[in-house]
Design a protein around this nucleic acid. Structure first.
Length: 349
DNA sequence: CGAAAAATAT
DNA sequence: GATATTTTTC
């Protein structure tokens, strides 16, 4: 009996450790729990045991029906298993610990535990950092709506910075039907200038939503490529209300810059001789994966699920001997940081 | 109109 | 602090 009791204690200790990773090792926890339970039952059949495991176990035993849990382990458990969504498979054996019913939903998952997470239950959501962000996503979608706001004036005082994932989501979601993705820049931020004196106020940044960019590309295609099209022509073809020449011009500038030297995001496949970066399709250069869709450009029925891909029409790279007039800083673009920045340039969605 | 600087955003 | 994106200036 003594040994059995020790065994139970050992199991309980083990369980306390596992408990922290309940989400990662649910079955493991389950097994240990069952083992403990069986041992207990065995013990309880013998007459003298009852007082034995009261207060004996290291885990500061509670009632016999409840599995004792070390306090220092309880804290993290509370946060992890109770605060998160209740997608927990709540079907643990009846005696499952879980005194952490104090479900304080508001509690955030502790950082250390986050780092220990072995998988993401919700891969589609912006990974981790969930609770607060999710809220803002909803909010933003609601008011951002996607209506075309040529100038967004985000009046709200101060901290209306948009969360990065949020804006991406919002734009992507609205891209199918709306022309202007609307909110991208968080208004805000550094602004803070007294808004009056309307004339010196800096223009609100235009966010080039995927749909806007599609139009841009379409216009470019009609005009014969980015190197021959001019901002004014492009703007006229795009027929987007509120779009200015300057904005198109700026976008064109960036477009030329990027198409000139496409910087594959994040992948360090710099010098890989095989796999050409571009493929000639009908006289225009497009990134390999995209060329099939070029023909389908235009309206494309704006179905979000279509993933219609509109290949950038790039001018053929100038011969090496050509002048390097575009002295864009040739910095070796090491940034993974930037990868998400120009996500829709070479994107696959 | 194009290039580059400046301002912002991430 | 480094980049990326957009606006302004030249």
């Amino acid at each position: 009996m003594q040994r059995c009791q020790e065994y139970i204690e050992a199991l309980e200790k083990e369980r306390c450790k596992i408990q922290v990773f309940e989400r990662e090792l649910p079955l493991c926890l389950d097994l240990v729990t069952q083992a403990i339970e069986s041992c207990r039952q065995q013990l309880s059949w013998s007459p003298t045991t009852t007082e034995y495991f009261h207060g004996q176990s290291e885990c500061s035993g509670q009632t016999s029906s409840e599995v004792p849990v070390l306090e220092e382990f309880i804290i993290p458990i509370k946060r992890s298993s109770c605060s998160d969504d209740d997608e927990e498979q709540s079907e643990k054996p009846k005696n499952n610990n879980k005194d952490c019913k104090s479900n304080d939903k508001s509690l955030k998952k502790s950082d250390w535990l986050t780092s220990f997470q072995l998988w993401n239950e919700t891969p589609d959501l912006p990974t981790k950092e969930d609770s607060p962000r999710n809220l803002s996503v909803i909010e933003l979608k609601k008011n951002g709506g996607g209506a075309f706001h040529p100038f967004k004036k985000e009046k709200s005082g101060g901290t209306t910075k948009t969360d990065p994932p949020v804006s991406v989501l919002a734009i992507a979601a609205s891209s199918s039907t709306e022309i202007g993705g609307g909110d991208c820049g968080g208004g805000s931020g550094g602004g803070k200038k007294e808004e009056k004196e309307g004339q010196s106020q800096r223009k609100a940044r235009r966010c080039w939503s995927p749909e806007l960019h599609r139009r841009f590309l379409h216009a470019l295609q009609q005009l014969g490529g980015s190197h021959v099209a001019t901002p004014k022509q492009i703007r006229e073809l795009m027929k987007v209300d509120g779009l200015t020449n300057d904005e198109v011009k700026s976008h064109l500038q960036k477009y030329r810059l990027h198409t000139r030297r496409p910087t594959p995001p994040s992948i360090h496949n710099n010098n890989n001789p095989q796999q050409p970066q571009f493929v000639v399709v009908g006289g225009i250069w497009v990134p390999p994966p995209e060329y099939t869709v070029v023909a389908a450009s235009g309206e494309a029925s704006g179905v979000a699920t279509t993933n219609g891909i509109y290949a950038p029409i790039a001018a053929p790279p100038p011969p090496p001997t050509q002048r390097q007039q575009y002295n864009q800083s040739n910095q070796s673009h090491s940034g993974e940081r930037g990868s998400h920045r120009g996500w829709w340039w070479w994107w696959s969605v």
